[in-house]
Structures are given as structure tokens and as C-alpha cells.
């Protein structure tokens, strides 16, 4: 049995590839994603997102980057193909936060990320 309580950290490049994410700002080389946090409430993320997580949200604006920076999130995954404004992209570059986008909604993308992080050597069906 896999131990579902201990996620494995996966390189951001691998996560992006396996989840079919569009790379808007690549996370700095060597960035690991060790968990996920899905919420559209920034205060919720502020209180509960773990360091090193991917932050899955539809809040595509600059304030999301501030929350990611403050919580130590590794990357932001913008769900449902939301439009990403230019100042958000710039802010991610400035702060060294990866910015990726998915056509999937938060539920599906969370499921895929969960599967990837919690199943050793899992490959995510596309």
C-alpha cells in the first residue's frame, strides 16, 4: 500500500509536463512542489497554504502572487484558462514564483496533482 499521508516532492518542470500546464512564468530551476492548496479565498490560502505548495486558484491577479510569496508557495496554477494580467506575470517574475495555467477546473487539476504527489512514480492520465 502507498502511504497516502506523505506526499513526494516533484520538480516543477515534471509537474507542469504531467499535468499539461501552460508555462507562463517557469519556476526557478530546481523548484520542488511538495503539496497542493486549492482555494479562491486568499485569506484561506494565507492561513492554510503550506510552504512549497502549488496554489490552485481562479484568482488570476497580482494579489494572488503576494499570498504565494508570503506563504512560500512554489507556484500558482491558474485554473479554467482564466486570463492572466500582465502585472501578475511581472510580479511572478520579480518574486520567483512559477505561474502556470490549466484548461481544467480546480477540482480536476487538484485531482491530477494529488495523484502525482501521493502516488510514487504515478503517471497522470491526460
Amino acid at each position: 500500500m502507498n502511504n497516502l499521508l506523505e506526499p513526494q516532492a516533484v520538480r516543477s518542470e515534471t509537474v507542469a509536463q504531467d499535468l499539461g500546464l501552460e508555462i507562463i512564468v517557469a519556476a526557478p530551476q530546481g523548484t520542488l512542489i511538495s503539496s497542493g492548496f486549492t482555494s479562491d479565498l486568499l485569506s484561506d490560502a494565507m492561513a492554510n497554504a503550506q510552504e512549497g505548495c502549488a496554489f490552485l486558484t481562479i484568482q488570476a491577479h497580482k494579489n494572488t502572487v503576494a499570498v504565494a510569496t508570503l506563504t512560500g508557495a512554489s507556484a500558482i496554477f491558474v485554473c479554467s484558462s482564466r486570463t492572466v494580467p500582465e502585472d501578475m506575470i511581472q510580479s511572478c517574475k520579480d518574486e520567483g514564483i512559477g505561474l502556470y495555467r490549466s484548461t481544467e477546473n480546480q477540482f480536476i487539476l487538484s485531482g491530477k496533482l494529488y495523484q502525482l504527489l501521493y502516488t510514487p512514480n504515478a503517471s497522470v492520465p491526460s
Binding site: 479562491d40 479565498l41 486568499l42 485569506s43 484561506d44 494565507m46 492561513a47 486558484t57 484568482q59 491577479h61 494579489n63 494572488t64
Partner: peptide, 15 residues
């Protein structure tokens, strides 16, 4: 709509 105003600000701060 920007993801704020969920009524968690002050409770978070206090915690």
C-alpha cells in the same frame, strides 16, 4: 470577487 472579504482577516491575525 477578488478573493478577499471572507471574514477571516482579523481571526487569522489574532490566531
Amino acid at each position: 470577487s477578488l478573493g478577499f472579504g471572507a471574514g477571516m482577516g482579523l481571526p487569522n491575525t489574532k490566531r
